[in-house]
């Protein structure tokens, strides 16, 4: 699974890091960045949760 983020949409809630810390990270301004854009099985469910829980709809998966 591939994950994409729209940094300009991010409102910096940190919800994605909260549920999926292996994939998501925050910069010094709390804006989302990725550890990796390729998600393997153990993290799939948490990334789906991050998509659902992003208040700004800034995360998508393909």
């Amino acid at each position: 699974m591939k994950v994409e983020i729209e940094r300009e949409r991010c409102i910096s809630s940190g919800n994605c890091v909260l549920v999926s810390p292996n994939v998501f990270d925050q910069d010094d301004h709390a804006i989302v960045r990725l550890h990796t854009d390729t998600v393997d099985e153990p993290d799939v469910a948490s990334v789906e949760e991050a998509v659902e829980g992003c208040p700004a709809a800034a995360i998508s998966i393909t």
Binding site: G14, V17, L18, Q26, D28
Partner: peptide, 10 residues
Amino acid sequence: AIKEFQSCRR
């Protein structure tokens, strides 16, 4: 403490 707070939130 943006990142350090995550464990408290969890």
